[in-house]
Computed example of a mutant assay.
Amino acid sequence: MGTTVTVCRSCPAGRSGLASAIRTAIKAAGLAMRVSEVDCMSGCTRPSTVAVRAPGKTAYLFGDASEADVPNLIVFLKLYDASADGNLADARPIGALREKALARIPG
């Protein structure tokens, strides 16, 4: 099992098609990742949450996500995929997405 991107379908962005936009962008980028949707990820103070995790790697939770963040999310996913432990040496390439990080959970 590789990287999984999980989108909260209870949140505004989840109801507006964010998961579909992420699936399309992942495919276009040639990445082999799974996109899933779940009801409520308890990020309600900063809704529209997206989680990224892979076995043995640091997991990330982002809030306030929208379709406008998809290009930066793809940059993040490429860096995440290339990282042995999921940690990024420099978060600047992911632009405004780095300010939307709610949690970084050690693998």
Results as ranks from 00 to 15, higher is better:
G2R: 13
T3I: 15
T4R: 13
V5E: 03
V5R: 01
T6V: 10
V7N: 01
V7R: 00
V7A: 01
V7L: 06
C8D: 06
R9C: 03
R9N: 13
S10N: 15
S10P: 05
C11E: 05
P12Y: 08
P12R: 02
P12E: 04
A13C: 08
G14R: 00
G14N: 02
R15S: 09
R15N: 05
S16H: 11
G17Q: 06
A19D: 11
A19H: 05
S20P: 08
A21M: 12
I22K: 01
R23F: 06
R23V: 06
T24M: 10
I26C: 08
I26K: 02
I26Y: 03
K27S: 14
K27R: 15
A28Y: 09
A29S: 12
A29V: 00
G30S: 05
G30F: 10
L31V: 04
L31T: 07
L31N: 04
A32C: 13
A32D: 15
A32R: 12
A32T: 11
A32K: 14
M33I: 07
D39N: 14
S42R: 14
G43H: 03
G43W: 02
C44S: 10
C44V: 04
C44F: 12
R46V: 14
R46P: 10
R46S: 14
P47G: 11
S48H: 06
T49K: 03
T49L: 04
T49C: 12
T49F: 10
T49R: 00
V50L: 06
A51V: 02
A51M: 12
V52R: 00
R53Q: 12
P55C: 08
P55E: 09
G56N: 09
G56W: 03
T58M: 12
T58L: 13
T58H: 12
T58K: 12
Y60L: 13
L61A: 12
F62Q: 00
G63Q: 07
G63C: 10
G63I: 02
A65K: 00
E67M: 07
V70N: 03
N72V: 01
N72F: 13
N72I: 03
I74Q: 05
V75L: 04
F76E: 04
F76A: 03
L77E: 03
L77H: 05
L77S: 01
L79G: 05
Y80V: 06
D81C: 05
A82Y: 01
A82R: 08
S83H: 02
A84K: 12
D85T: 11
N87V: 08
A89F: 00
A89W: 00
A91N: 11
A91W: 15
R92A: 15
P93Q: 10
P93A: 10
I94Q: 04
I94S: 04
G95V: 08
A96Y: 11
A96Q: 13
A96N: 14
L97R: 02
L97V: 09
L97T: 06
R98T: 09
R98F: 14
R98S: 14
E99W: 14
E99G: 15
L102Y: 06
L102H: 11
A103S: 13
A103M: 14
I105C: 08
I105D: 11
P106A: 09
